[in-house]
Amino acid sequence: MSALEPRLIGTLYRAACLAELDALKPGNVHAYAAGHRMVVADFVTSADVSAPELARAGAGTGERVRAGIAATLAAVAQNTNLGIFLLCAPLAVAAERGLSVGAVLDDLDAADSVAVFAAIRLANPGGLGRAAKHDVAAEAPASLRAAMAEAADRDRIARAYGTGFSDIGLIGLPALAEARAQGLDPSWCTTAIHLAYLRSVPDSHIARKAGASVAEGVRLEVEAVLSGLDLAARPAEPLLALDASLKARGLNPGTSADFTVATLFWDALASAGAALA
């Protein structure tokens, strides 16, 4: 498998973060509209300061996550990218070492667990709550994947650690390929990825904060809005209406946005020669 240079990995990660911000993503912060007390500039700064940590040569998954979150909090004083880092750090390790994502996940060790738990405590993500087993406030377990498995039923990113990031291959990359086949420009291709996640699975960030039934309701709502909608026509008006409605209700599909960045990053790494699957 082809190994990529760390500097290139960092460049591709930053580009994926910025591309996600340029797209109209209902319910999230994007160039069309701010929301949830955050603005695009916060996320641009986060991408800038975290890219070197994401691409730190020789570092493991956990070390990259912890360092990236620390750099982000120092720069913007809020959690803008924990989910992004949890998804993108294993991709960066895989690309640098010339490994598959599955091989990187299989190789996670106790040090990765300690570092990721420290990063989660630093970020203090909304709606995290408490867990009977492997709670982040407690000592980190020896196995990060075991901890992720415990959270898999309530967190789609945690679930990804047990499925080899299958959602990217089953939802994100096919949506991107279809959008490109339709001739959509890059920003609308990104919108297509985000909408594919929104309509395919209940967003677990919404579920953690507002409940599973609300998350499923949003999924059905998105399905209804998208019925008959042609993204090639750049239908900004109905999508901005959905965006405003979600934000007015305090509903942020952040997990879908995180997976959108990871999908763009995966695609860019693969295009550069990384064999991640």
Rank of each mutant, 00 (worst) to 15 (best):
L226P: 04
A75N: 12
A103I: 10
H134C: 06
L108F: 06
L173K: 04
R37V: 10
S271C: 11
L54S: 13
V201A: 12
L195E: 00
S213Q: 14
S143Q: 14
D167Q: 14
A215W: 03
S245G: 08
A207W: 12
S143W: 12
F85V: 07
V218T: 01
F85N: 06
A241P: 08
S213I: 05
L220P: 00
Y161Q: 08
L108M: 10
A274I: 03
S100C: 13
Y161I: 05
S50Q: 15
G126D: 07
A236G: 01
A262D: 05
A241L: 12
D135G: 10
V225D: 03
A3Q: 11
A268I: 14
S2C: 04
A192F: 02
E5T: 13
L226M: 07
D153T: 15
F165W: 07
A15M: 12
D135F: 09
V114E: 07
C88P: 07
A212L: 14
Y32Q: 10
E216N: 05
V76W: 13
L246M: 10
L251G: 08
A151D: 09
D185T: 03
D42A: 01
D109Y: 01
A151G: 08
N124E: 10
L73C: 15
A75Q: 14
K133I: 14
A111W: 05
A118M: 11
Y32C: 09
Q78F: 09
L24T: 08
V225K: 05
L246C: 08
G254R: 08
F85C: 10
G183V: 01
D230M: 11
N252E: 00
P141C: 11
A215M: 04
E96W: 03
A119Q: 01
A55H: 00
V104F: 08
R180Y: 09
K247N: 04
A118V: 07
A110N: 04
V225W: 02
A95C: 13
D153N: 15
A51S: 07
V214I: 12
A181Y: 01
I206D: 00
E96R: 15
I171K: 09
V261M: 08
A151W: 11
L86A: 13
E237C: 00
P125M: 10
A215V: 08
E63D: 08
D106S: 15
K247Y: 03
L240S: 08
A67F: 07
L251W: 02
D153Q: 14
G183C: 02
A123K: 11
T72Q: 14
V49P: 05
I193S: 11
A140Q: 04
A268E: 15
A142L: 14
V40R: 11
